[in-house]
């Protein structure tokens, strides 16, 4: 309602209200009229009509005084008196607007964030780089290339302000564990038992085998001599002789039991036989334990 650019005036007179009527007849509107006393009114008028008002009342019994500007005019006068502030504000707005076109930071987020270096290379090839103007077509090209990264199922290149955010998401599917295809001997020893459900036996019971030796191969042969790859399903048991030494300060059955237990712990498997020899040395006794253990191993069972 009140004009944006206006001036605050006071009118002093014996009958100040008549001044309002005079202005109204001249087509000049007044706003926010307040009675400051029996002979004074305070009011606002449009700034462009102020001079006209002074002209109307010059030489009359009405004393018109301009107090100050109001509204946006006051703000404009403030900035005109302080041009530096106005120029600074304008420069700031201009810089903010212009800098919005440039890329000042690149972020790579998502489960595929480990591809940060690759993503930056792809962006640079598409013309999106730090301190360069952002191009929307380059972003689309980069997005297509990012999707070709291994395991990446989603890619997006979005600019907000002066930050380019690359989102890469990898497939959430769990990797299928690699199935063992053959049965290997768990240790050196004699193959006691070999049970083959699938695959081809490469050793027979009673054979002396070495640790890691293939006992069952992941293939089978047809009657025609064709070989088909598969995975072995088999179980074996190997008899192993294992020796170890144990030191004890005493020579007793208890010490002997402890020596067997300690060496068995190291050997593993099922204990079948144990031989112990004790020899005095260094203030105690060294027990030499020789065990026969059964080691069982299986594949895909």
């Amino acid at each position: 309602m009140t004009p944006l650019f206006c001036d605050i005036l006071t009118i002093d007179s014996v009958a100040p209200l008549r001044a309002l009527d005079k202005l109204s007849k001249k087509g000049i509107g007044v706003y926010k009229v307040q009675k400051m006393g029996p002979t004074r009114l305070k009011l606002r008028v449009k700034s462009k009509e102020t001079e006209k008002i002074f002209a109307i009342f010059s030489g009359s019994c009405y004393t018109v005084t301009k107090i100050r500007s109001a509204g946006l005019k006051r703000l404009a006068e403030f900035f005109l008196r302080r041009m530096g502030i106005a120029v600074g504000v304008l420069l700031l707005l201009l810089l903010s607007f212009v800098s919005n076109f440039f890329v000042l930071k690149i972020e790579v987020i998502g489960s595929g964030a480990r591809y940060r270096e690759e993503a930056e290379e792809v962006l640079a090839k598409s013309g999106i780089d730090l301190f360069c103007v952002f191009r929307a077509d380059g972003a689309e090209t980069a997005r297509g290339e990012l999707l070709s990264l291994p395991g990446v199922v989603f890619a997006s290149v979005v600019k907000r302000g002066c930050v380019v955010t690359v989102t890469l998401e990898e497939s959430e599917e769990t990797q299928v564990p690699q199935r063992k295809t053959q049965l290997l001997a768990p240790c050196d020893g004699v193959l006691e038992e070999l049970t083959v459900f699938r695959g081809t036996a490469l050793a027979k019971e009673g054979d002396r085998v070495s640790a890691g030796q293939a006992l069952v191969g992941g293939y089978f042969e047809t009657e025609n001599g064709e070989t088909f790859q598969t995975f072995a399903v088999a179980r074996c048991s190997v008899l192993q002789s294992y020796s170890g030494k144990y030191f004890s300060k005493e020579l007793s059955e208890r010490a002997e039991s402890q020596a067997i237990a300690a060496v068995h712990l190291a050997a593993g498997g099922e204990l079948l036989e144990a031989q112990v020899k004790a020899k005095a040395a260094d203030g105690g006794f060294i027990y030499t334990v020789t065990l026969k253990v059964r080691i069982v191993s299986a594949v895909n069972l």
Binding site: M1, S24, G27, I28, G29, V30, K32, V33, L43
Partner: peptide, 12 residues
């Protein structure tokens, strides 16, 4: 009371 606007025959 205060005169919010007065002019051209209209008074608010």
């Amino acid at each position: 009371f205060s005169i919010a606007r007065y002019g051209e025959g209209d008074l608010l």
